[in-house]
Write a protein that binds this DNA or RNA. Structure first.
Lengths: 125, 125
DNA sequence: TAGATGTACTATCCGATATAGTACACCCCC
DNA sequence: GGGGGTGTACTATATCGGATAGTACATCTA
C-alpha cells in the first residue's frame, strides 16, 4: 500500500508524507479513515518508528491528518488547497527557472500537453 | 555581480553553478570571457575557495566553462540545451506532481501565462 | 624569478537524517 | 482492573552531505 524508496535522496519521512497525500487524492484514503499505527507502518516499511512518527507529526501540523493519543491517526477533512499549494508553488518556481533559461512558453505548453495526455493513461513520462 | 545566499538550504556551490549559467543566458558573460579566480570569488562572496572550486569543476564537467591551470576559468561555447535540460526535467516533475494532486491543466496554463507576462517586465511572482 | 592560477589532498566541523532504546500517558477491550 | 495497543517525548548514536581550514603542487604569466 505504501511505497518507500530507502535509496532515494528524498528523506523517508518526506516520502511517507507525500505517499499519504497521494492516497487521499486518489480516494484510497477517505475522511476519518485510520492510518496504520506508527509501529505497524515502521515494521511494514522496514524503517524506524521515529521516522514514521515524524511524518505523521508533519501531516498533523499541516492539518491533513489528526492524531489521538491512545487511539491512532486518522485522515482529516480533505482540503484540496492544502494538497495543491506546495506543488503549485514548485510548479511556479520550475516555470520561472525555465523562463530565466530562455525557454519559450510554447515549449512548456507542449510539455504540459504531453504530461496530461499520458497521465490519463497511467503512464510515466 | 554574483549573489549568494548563505542562509539558503540550497548548497552554495549549486547557487554559484546556477548563477554563472544565469549570467551566460542573460548575455552578461560571453564565450571566452574569464571568470573570477577561485580565490577572488571566494573572498568576494565570503565563502571557502574549495566551495567555489567545486562549483567550477561541476561547470567544467558539464561543458559550460573550461579551466586552464595557471591561467584561469573561461566561458565555453554556449550550448543552450545544456542550460535547458535540467530545468525542463524539473518542470516536468513539477507538472506531474500537480497532475497527481488533481490540479487541472487549465490552472497550470494560467500560471504559465502569469509567469511569462510578468517575466518580461522583470518582476517576480 | 615572483605571483597568480587551477587542482589535489587531509582534517575538521556542522546540520539533517535516521536509527536504537526507553519511557510515559492515554485509550479500548476482555 | 489489567493487558495491549496507541501517540508522544526524550536521549544517544551513526551516517552523510556540505562547508571550512590549511597545505601543497604544477602551471602559466608578467
Amino acid at each position: 500500500m505504501f511505497s518507500i524508496d530507502l535509496t532515494s535522496r528524498i528523506p523517508i519521512y518526506e516520502q511517507i508524507y507525500e505517499n499519504i497525500i497521494s492516497l487521499i487524492v486518489k480516494g484510497t484514503l477517505a475522511e476519518n479513515d485510520q492510518l496504520p499505527s506508527v509501529r505497524a507502518f515502521a515494521k511494514d516499511a522496514g524503517v524506524n518508528p521515529n521516522t514514521v512518527a515524524k511524518a505523521y507529526q508533519e501531516l498533523e501540523r499541516t492539518g491533513i491528518i489528526y492524531s489521538v493519543p491512545g487511539r491512532g491517526s486518522f485522515i482529516a477533512k480533505p482540503d484540496s488547497s492544502v494538497f495543491q499549494s506546495a506543488v503549485l508553488s514548485e510548479f511556479d518556481n520550475a516555470a520561472m527557472a525555465c523562463a530565466d533559461r530562455g525557454i519559450d512558453k510554447q515549449v512548456l505548453a507542449e510539455h504540459l500537453d504531453n504530461i496530461y495526455t499520458k497521465h490519463g493513461k497511467g503512464e510515466k513520462l
